[in-house]
Design a binder for these strands. Structure first.
Length: 292
DNA sequence: TACCAGGATGTTG
DNA sequence: CAACATCATGGT
């Protein structure tokens, strides 16, 4: 076991609350207050788990506990729970907006739960396009259970997302028994093939500017403004990336500001001026407010 | 049946 | 840029 110290603003209870928002979530597992996660490195799966007791305590569940694996898990966890950013700066910005400020107070210490793997966030956001979240989780579960890799520990199965290479060789028809629409299946194939054939990689995108990354992503058929911004905030640490078309955000804003109707795009754009620099983080907090 | 859901695409103002 | 029509699928 090893430990990771947590930053000044850090709330493990809110983190657990976010991670447990849907019971069909299959890419991590919660047992009591322990979080299990499988990551893939060089085609090998690593299962690890995280608990919290004044700091994060991490166990790797395999015989090989090399320093390399420890470093990978450390880096993954730091990215996943956004341990590096200065939340104080976000809270400072939030003071411009009394509604956002009170949400920040309520969820103080909640860090953006990211998706360190860009491929995962793209697939997940395509799955989530224009369907309700619960159905989206069902689709993801079917995809992962059908095509993903599995590791068994203490007679419990833990899953990893299918690789781009695995998905890239499928046909639209392979997705239909899972109840994917044809367009959704095609979009997933498009992204998988981009990755599998080496035309797109997270590493390469890291070298580009915000606008260039967005432009590159939107070139892919099936990735629009919402998906590009979603993935950039969840996977690329672009905390001002703003998925403004998001229905969940619209609903949360309507509720939190006590509006009689959902805001239009232009109205929301104006409101979000106050969050500038942290519009993605603000979005994440508004989403969290939907949990009640 | 109609409408909604963490949109995308293409067209039009 | 913003608004609109059309598409696609299952849930309520």
């Amino acid at each position: 076991m090893f430990e990771i110290s947590t930053p000044k603003e850090f709330n493990f209870d809110q983190l657990l609350r976010f991670l447990s928002r849907n019971e069909k979530e299959c890419l991590h597992t919660l047992r009591d207050r322990e979080i299990f996660k499988v990551i893939s490195n060089e085609n090998k799966l690593i299962l690890f788990s995280i608990t919290f007791d004044s700091c994060l305590q991490i166990s790797i569940h395999s015989e090989d506990k090399s320093q390399k694996k420890v470093d990978l898990v450390k880096k993954y966890t730091s990215d996943w729970f956004d341990l590096e950013s200065d939340l104080g700066l976000f809270y400072e910005t939030a003071q411009n907006d009394s509604v956002l400020a009170s949400i920040c107070k309520k969820f103080h210490g909640l860090r953006m739960i990211g998706m360190p793997d860009l491929f995962e966030s793209l697939i997940w956001s395509i799955i989530g396009q224009q369907i309700n979240l619960n159905f989206a989780y069902s689709l993801k579960e079917r995809l992962v259970h059908t095509f993903g890799q599995k590791i068994i520990h203490n007679e419990i199965s833990f899953y990893a997302l299918p690789t781009p290479e695995r998905l890239a060789i499928l046909n639209i028809e392979d997705f239909q028994p899972l109840q994917f629409s044809r367009s959704k299946a095609q979009y997933i194939l498009n992204v998988s093939q981009e990755f599998a054939e080496g035309r797109l990689s997270q590493e390469a995108l890291k070298k580009l500017s915000f606008e260039d990354v967005k432009e590159r992503l939107i070139k892919i058929k099936g990735i629009g403004n919402w998906t590009a911004n979603y993935s950039m905030m969840k996977s690329m640490k672009n905390y001002d990336a703003f998925p403004i078309e998001d229905v969940g955000l619209h609903n949360a804003v309507k509720t939190q500001y006590g509006l009689t109707a959902k805001p239009s795009i232009s109205e929301l754009n104006q409101m979000a001026e106050k969050w500038k620099g942290w519009r993605g983080y603000a979005t994440f907090y508004f989403w969290h407010s939907l949990l009640g």
